[in-house]
Computed example of a mutant assay.
Amino acid sequence: MATNITWHPSLSRNERNTYRKQRGFTIWFTGLSASGKSTIATALEQHLLHLGLAAYRLDGDNVRFGLNKDLGFSETDRNENIRRIAEVAKLFADSSTIAITSFISPYRADRNTARELHAAPSAVHPDDEPLAFIEVFVDIPLEVAEQRDPKGLYKKAREGKIPEFTGISAPYEEPENPEIKIRSDQRSVEEAVKEIVDYLDAKGLLKLNSADGRGLEY
């Protein structure tokens, strides 16, 4: 644990939101490998950018090959992987950017920790509104995921070539109360994106009222 550190005063979250004309929050995709998480997350990021909103997607390609390249796939390493991702997502959200994460994140406790991190009050600006955390469970039957298996990972896991593979030799704990649940084998990518955007709009997360009361809508 770091010691002798002091939080330096900075802009409040509300000030950043006003200057950037949008709210920051995190959309947390979870689900089995080959469930379609990354496909939907990529399409969502593109759609939000087309709306003129700042959004950024975190997934295995830009995290596992960089920030978390020192981690394996043991339960301990998976926990640390998600902890780091949650902290980075919170930083993006705090900067008034929409953070989109796409990871299996198999353990319920780790996802709950990520949610609690976003809800925690600021040490310097306790009046700042909490950061919204939207859990999107991309649900799919295991047999359908195995049929898709674009990278051949399930086949290798069944053959014992990949130890601790989620859904085969390691557990996946389904979310109990996700904000959004999508059966990706029953809905198109476009339908999934629309459902998420409709939810965000209904919650007022895609619009921001300025100090003079004028609505800034996208």
Rank of each mutant, 00 (worst) to 15 (best):
residue 209 N to F: 14
residue 139 D to H: 13
residue 156 K to M: 12
residue 4 N to M: 09
residue 77 D to P: 05
residue 5 I to F: 10
residue 145 A to I: 00
residue 6 T to C: 11
residue 127 D to Q: 14
residue 145 A to K: 02
residue 77 D to R: 04
residue 105 S to R: 00
residue 75 E to H: 11
residue 171 P to T: 09
residue 41 A to P: 02
residue 114 A to L: 09
residue 6 T to V: 11
residue 127 D to N: 15
residue 64 R to Q: 01
residue 13 R to S: 05
residue 99 A to S: 03
residue 165 F to L: 08
residue 31 G to R: 08
residue 164 E to A: 11
residue 218 Y to M: 09
residue 144 V to G: 01
residue 32 L to Q: 00
residue 60 G to Y: 02
residue 25 F to M: 00
residue 136 V to C: 14
residue 158 R to Y: 00
residue 118 H to G: 02
residue 9 P to W: 00
residue 194 K to G: 15
residue 116 E to C: 04
residue 6 T to W: 01
residue 160 G to K: 06
residue 85 I to N: 05
residue 17 N to W: 07
residue 23 R to L: 08
residue 18 T to C: 04
residue 206 L to N: 08
residue 174 E to K: 15
residue 201 D to F: 13
residue 76 T to D: 14
residue 157 A to W: 00
residue 20 R to I: 02
residue 96 S to E: 02
residue 205 L to F: 13
residue 41 A to G: 06
residue 58 L to C: 01
residue 95 S to W: 05
residue 177 N to A: 15
residue 70 D to K: 07
residue 111 R to F: 06
residue 106 P to A: 04
residue 13 R to Y: 14
residue 62 N to H: 11
residue 58 L to D: 05
residue 82 I to F: 09
residue 147 Q to D: 11
residue 75 E to I: 13
residue 50 H to R: 12
residue 150 P to K: 02
residue 108 R to H: 06
residue 190 E to Q: 15
residue 19 Y to Q: 12
residue 94 D to K: 15
residue 133 F to D: 03
residue 215 G to D: 14
residue 104 I to F: 06
residue 137 F to Q: 12
residue 207 K to D: 13
residue 86 A to V: 09
residue 204 G to T: 09
residue 129 E to L: 08
residue 161 K to D: 07
residue 205 L to K: 11
residue 174 E to I: 11
residue 128 D to A: 11
residue 188 S to Q: 10
residue 112 N to T: 01
residue 66 G to D: 08
residue 95 S to H: 07
residue 183 R to P: 10
residue 94 D to G: 15
residue 70 D to A: 11
residue 129 E to K: 06
residue 18 T to P: 01
residue 33 S to L: 00
residue 100 I to D: 03
